[in-house]
Design a protein around this nucleic acid. Structure first.
Lengths: 233, 233
DNA sequence: GCATGGCAAGAGCGGTGCTCTCTTTTTTGT
DNA sequence: ACAAAAAAGAGAGCACCGCTCTTGCCATGC
């Protein structure tokens, strides 16, 4: 039936969604630190204590918003990748497109970006439930490298001996079909990408980099080369 | 005399220092978000309103802590550089030493790291007074590249046409004696360094990278190569 | 048809940043 | 030397916050 649990459960779902929606608005407008349950409740015309029927604490509400943010970012990155992949672009152009999608999303929603990649909310540690959503962009980047195949001579920096065991462990975990040096380079590039995006979103480039789009494109192209991607594929 | 302004000014300096010290302790212990003026005042045996005679607002206290954090980081990086430079190390080893100092400092004082390189405190924008302290690590990295000289053929990625004007502007601002492609690569490496450090400090490498020290060393060695440094150079 | 369980409401606790007033103490100017 | 002025501490108070507990209502499910 269309009312599988009766009108009551239906209302619960709607109220839950309304809370998340309003909380998302306030998050986008003022940031996570200023997100208050009382304000959300006030805006929704309910009393603050009623909100605790839906989210046991402020942190649980934040968790819901975090998962939404990861999903929104992952979706945007995947969409951007699909567009250029369908146009027949090579691996470097696909890599750059994904990076630019991440940057664009972060600049559009700086507070959501801060929520997932900024300082962790104190006393709060992301529950396991955020992991799949959080992994989407990483998987996308791995996929691009996998699709490109790895011609000999295009390999990234050779691994120093001290890193080889860890690189092999990472490769076994993340992409058993890729050589360990590629996986190590990928993980580093992944972190470095968020360094570039974070510096821009958090204002660290203020009065340092002015024309940021070409700068970013150039930097992530360097990242692509670092993991072994070349124009030809 | 030893009391150039009388006992009053002397006391003011001491109380100010005590406030900053206690605030720093609480910051290190619990993070910026949980830093409360009232708690600091309580710990110091004064009433909260008295604290406003020394810091007009919580944000001003945070600003003082931010400057201290930048200085502490800069000092540690400079000390690390001095050690390896005095030992006659080449540019790559000096670069890596500075990066490792940044990482070590961040891991030692995650909350201070979050304060200066994490999500900006909402409604707060760092005043101009933080700029010199914030620039120290960057200047150090520029200095290493400058000292290395730039042999031909070791240059970083050639600049695309769209980035050339901006790269020349950055070079004029930051290091007029270095070629624009080197400066662009330097700024990118600077941001990427903090991506690597931030991911580790903020727990993004949890269950992804386990043996982090060699991984970091390898990644920042790659960064050094990216700006044109080579072992011999 | 009625007991039950989900839900909104309200009061209240302990905490926050910040302001204002009042008093005391020190510095400064004549 | 003494009064005026500046600086500092204390306390009350405002408007918030997260969160808990109790109360009473009302729709739902037996």
């Amino acid at each position: 039936m269309s009312t599988p649990q009766g009108a009551r459960a239906r209302a619960r779902i709607e109220v839950t969604a309304a809370i998340k929606e309003e909380a998302g608005r306030r998050l986008a407008a003022e940031g996570a630190a200023k997100l208050s349950l009382r304000a959300v409740a006030r805006e929704l015309g309910m009393v603050s204590s009623a909100l605790y029927r839906y989210f046991p604490s402020r942190d649980d509400l934040l968790t819901a918003l975090i998962i939404d943010a990861y999903d929104s970012l992952g979706e945007r990155a995947e969409a951007a990748h699909t567009v250029v992949a369908d146009a027949g672009a090579g691996p470097v152009r696909r890599w750059v497109a994904v990076c630019e999608a991440v940057r664009g999303w972060a600049l559009d929603r700086p507070h959501e970006y801060a929520l997932i990649y900024g300082s962790p909310v104190p006393g709060y540690s992301a529950p396991q439930s955020t992991v799949p959503a959080a992994a989407r962009v990483g998987l996308l980047l791995i996929g691009i490298v996998r699709d490109a195949g790895q011609g000999p001579g295009l390999a990234p920096l050779p691994l120093p001996a001290e890193l080889r065991p860890e690189a092999e462990r990472m490769a076994a975990d993340l992409a058993p079909d890729l050589p360990p040096e590629t996986v190590a380079a990928l993980v580093a590039a992944w972190a470095q990408l968020y360094g570039l995006v974070g510096f821009e979103v958090f204002g660290q480039f203020h009065r340092v980099v002015e024309d940021r789009e070409p700068f970013f494109r150039h930097a992530v192209t360097g990242l692509a080369h670092g993991v072994g991607l070349r124009e030809g594929g």
